[in-house]
Design a protein around this nucleic acid. Structure first.
Length: 863
DNA sequence: ATGTACAAGATTTTT
DNA sequence: TCTTGTACAT
């Protein structure tokens, strides 16, 4: 519904204005021009000269700088259509990356419409991550993975890190695994492998342990044959750097590269892109300076990210080919000469709102440096919003200092002024907005054309409450997604374990779900063993179930569970995967667990499970389904019913609506206090861009609100109207009174001095405690936290055995034990004993006190 | 191993 | 305020 819905509008409007047609074509005379216009293919129809230039400039690098509502995505889509229909490239030779899977799907859909048929064979249209993942799967063995690797999501990631922290004796309370996950994520966004993390940042957790944990994490991922989302790109970069042949294969393959939302690309994405779009065959760009795979993948990325200070050695034909190009589909049609790179990036520096997630606006600012000879095309004609809305947004964003600067214009009517409404409190705000929406509805507006964009998701609740009482249909966009729901993840975990027994995170997730009496202690035991032996949890479970490490009860259930999995795995060969899923959910007792559950959402969860099984039908087999899940996990919204959309400003990116409500324009909330505290001026500017994005989502009406009192986490605090309100141009704004009626009359200073009351309120405004508390924790600024943790006795006690274990790892990674019959050994639980039988790494030991027991060798040490 | 009582902490979010 | 996670009792 985003850019798509504007297409007809745009065309019809432009049909009226002849001056929009390209009248300055070099060879175009009068008749010829008309003949040409008549023959205009659908994908060029109705483009203005700016847009048309962006579509038709096919050779060499192009940067399209475009403001909101200027048809950016349309340009990209038309460009693909143009490339295809002029026969310059075949679908699989075009690489097009977008920001979300949704955007990718939409582009495919639009492309189909433009070309008049379904778009077949467009395998390289997608997001960075899914494309990166695909390439990684093809060349998995080159990065020491198996091609059926699993992709961990945040939840898995955090649980894995929690275990690593625990093993390192680090208290999860003080240093939550989530924090480490965030850090590692940030490092990966910046394209940093463990060895490249600046020592200051690696010192998090004390003593450079942050860096060590990162290393341990990556190692664990490898043994689990897993990658996290960051790896999908990072490992890709490594792959390209270490295997110039592979890289060249892709460089030659992709004749056209297109990137949407370039302003929101992060460093890793940038590096990845630059490698692919490299025009030169300079060794410094293509080949690593060190010999390939010399140091287990710790690639020196300076030469890539730096300013090209590396040597300009030309890669000769006789350059070493460290790894042969793998056989398979990737091999076809790889010409020897490298074509000039036709990369086209589309973006708007004023819409960069993901800086906090590692996006680098610099990427867009540096474009012509990175791609010499780049053509920069500006799209400044806005087709979306009316005059007042556009003027308000432009005036606001002009307050930002660091920006390229664009002057958007519209030929649309002035329309209604942007309104600013003050409410007494957030409740009244919700009430007022509810009423206005009902009014709009009565006036014949579709609810689909109404959106409420909030800064933070806690603001949503009040609107939901209000809409429920009003009986107004609404949908929350960007809420917990289908695949994030616990029941879906549980079910998937079962299937994942069946598909790949080594999937630890999945196994751990369901080992005691439904409750079957395998508690933390047991899991911990399994985990210790798994890590010591560098094996998967499932393998550890199997090994330990045969010994006396566990009490009979958990041992029995564990063995039963493993038997179940064996059986399911057998059955998976014989029956359709949907049927298997039903059997598994049934026999595991998972369905039963929810059936017994008396809580309100249990029914919905069962429904979701059914939906999951249904969605599996589209796939040929379990493997295919799971691969899809790990990369795209996304569900198309059901049938589109008429409803108000409720979402955060961030998830509104790329969308547009006739009527947009923007509540909560108050200091502290918007701009958000934390952004201000942590990022200072840069933070403020990003917030302002967010405000700009918010206003420019509106086609006909933009309605801003602020409340004088807001309840933040239960306590009421008085708030001050946002400074952004002051920055709006008076001529395009109308100040209205809250129609909620009750409290706020507009008399208290706000009306009189318009928005200049900031100072007046400033003193009375108090920063809520939680904001102040968080204030000095800057992102990436944990450098100062150099206090070595674990000096206390308790954690010492836990860490001490680690050293011993460390030695054990070195000794007993092999499958067979290097103990011999008759050796005296010591066991933590059973004490001293003598080995009487050896079966692989399972030892039978006659203990002095405890009698004869079967034990895995990693649990004993020489006495 | 599991249920319950209490304390802490609470932007934005895509793979 | 309300959710989430941890400490403690059963």
């Amino acid at each position: 519904m985003t850019e798509l819905s504007k297409l007809p509008r745009q065309e019809s409007r432009q049909d009226l204005s002849h001056h929009d047609l390209p009248d300055h074509q070099p060879m175009a005379g009068g008749i010829a021009a008309r003949a040409r216009a008549a023959a205009t293919p659908p994908y060029l129809a109705g483009l203005n000269p700016e847009q048309r230039e962006a579509v038709e400039t096919l050779d060499g690098p192009v940067l399209v700088l475009a403001g909101a509502g200027t048809g950016k995505t349309r340009v990209l889509t038309s460009r693909i259509a143009h490339i295809l229909s002029t026969g310059r490239a075949r679908p699989h030779e075009i690489l097009s990356v977008t920001f979300t899977n949704k955007a990718a799907r939409e582009m495919k859909h639009r492309l189909g419409q433009m070309l008049g048929h379904a778009v077949e064979g467009m395998p390289w249209l997608g997001t960075f991550h899914s494309i990166g993942g695909r390439i990684l799967r093809v060349h998995a063995e080159l990065v020491q993975l198996k091609s059926n690797f699993t992709v961990l999501d945040v939840d898995d990631q955090v649980r894995l890190l929690k275990q690593l922290l625990q093993a390192d004796g680090i208290d999860d309370k003080r240093w939550p695994a989530r924090m480490l996950a965030g850090l590692i994520d940030g490092w990966k966004n910046r394209g940093l492998t463990p060895s490249q993390v600046p020592s200051g940042e690696a010192a998090v957790f004390g003593n450079g342990r942050g860096g060590k944990l990162y290393t341990a994490y990556q190692e664990r991922l490898k043994t689990l044959n897993a990658a996290d989302f960051g790896d999908l790109l990072l490992e890709n970069i490594r792959l390209f750097r270490e295997n110039p042949d592979v890289l060249r294969g892709y460089q030659n393959r992709f004749k056209y590269i297109l990137v949407d939302e370039y302003q929101d690309t992060n460093v890793a994405q940038y590096l990845w892109l630059r490698l692919l779009a490299q025009t030169s065959t300079r060794a410094s760009d293509v080949a690593p300076l060190t010999s390939p795979r010399s140091s287990r993948g710790e690639v020196d990325m300076q030469s890539m990210s730096g300013e090209g200070q590396a040597t300009d050695t030309v890669l000769s034909d006789s350059a070493p080919h460290p790894t042969p190009l793998p056989a398979g589909g990737e091999r076809e049609n790889v010409p020897q000469i490298s074509a000039p790179k036709n990369i086209c990036c589309v973006g708007d520096d004023d819409q960069s709102i993901y800086g906090w997630r590692g996006a680098e606006v610099d990427n867009i600012l540096r474009f012509d440096h990175d791609f010499p000879g780049a053509k920069v095309i500006r799209l400044e004609r806005n087709y979306r919003s009316t005059g007042h809305i556009l003027a308000a947004a432009s005036h606001l964003i002009a307050h930002n200092e660091s920006r390229l600067g664009k002057t958007l214009r519209t030929e649309d009517v002035e329309g209604e002024k942007v309104t600013v409404t003050g409410a007494w409190d957030s409740e009244e705000e919700a009430r007022a907005i509810g009423e206005e929406i009902e009014q709009l509805q009565r006036a014949g507006n579709k609810l689909n054309e109404v959106a409420i964009l909030v800064r933070a998701s806690f603001q949503m609740r009040e609107f939901e409450d209000r809409f429920v009482t009003l009986g107004l249909p609404y949908r929350v966009i960007g809420g917990p997604r289908f695949y994030e729901r616990a029941e879906i993840r549980d079910a998937l975990a079962y299937l994942r374990v069946i598909n790949s027994p080594a999937d630890d995170l999945a196994f751990e997730r369901i080992i005691n779900v439904p409750k079957r009496g395998i508690g933390d202690a047991t899991v911990q035991l399994l985990y210790d063993h798994a890590r010591k032996q560098r094996m998967s949890l499932a393998a550890a479970a199997r090994a330990i179930a045969d010994t006396d490490e566990l009490k009979p009860k958990p041992r029995g259930t564990l063995r039963g569970l493993m038997d179940n999995f064996d059986r399911w795995r057998m059955q998976s060969q014989a029956m359709p995967h949907t049927e298997l899923a039903e059997i598994v959910l049934d026999e595991s007792g998972y369905t039963e667990m929810w059936q017994k559950d008396r809580s309100a959402d249990a029914a919905g969860r069962l429904e979701n499970l059914k939906e999951l099984v249904r969605s599996m039908e589209e796939f040929e087999n379990l493997q295919g389904f799971l691969e899809h899940i790990s990369l795209v996990m996304d569900r198309d919204g059901g049938p589109e019913e008429d409803a108000v959309s409720l979402m955060t400003l961030h998830s509104a990116k790329g969308l547009e609506f006739d009527n947009v409500f923007l509540p909560g324009w108050e200091e502290g909330l918007f701009p958000h206090q934390r952004a201000l505290d942590e990022q200072g001026r840069a933070g403020l500017e990003e917030e302002r861009r967010l405000a700009h994005v918010g206003i420019t989502r509106a086609r006909r009406r933009a309605k801003l609100y602020f409340a004088t009192n807001r309840r933040i986490h239960g306590t009421w605090s008085t708030t001050v109207p946002s400074r952004f309100l002051d920055e709006l141009p008076a001529d395009n704004v109308e100040i209205t009174e809250s129609k909620g009626g009750s409290g706020w009359g507009g008399s208290s200073g706000y009306g009189a001095s318009r928005f200049d009351n900031l100072e007046a309120f400033g003193s009375s405004y108090s920063t809520p405690g939680w904001q102040r508390a968080q204030a000095n924790r800057s992102r990436g600024g944990f450098n100062e936290a150099g206090t070595p943790y674990g000096a206390g006795g308790a954690s010492r006690a836990r860490r001490a055995p680690l050293t011993i274990e460390g030695e054990l790892i070195a000794k007993s990674t092999g499958t067979t034990s290097d103990y011999s019959l008759g050796d005296r050994v010591f066991h933590q639980k059973f004490g001293y004993g003598r080995i009487v039988k050896i079966d692989g790494n399972k030892l039978s030991i006659a203990f002095d006190k405890a009698g004869e027991k079967k034990v895995v060798d990693s649990f004993v040490q020489r006495a």
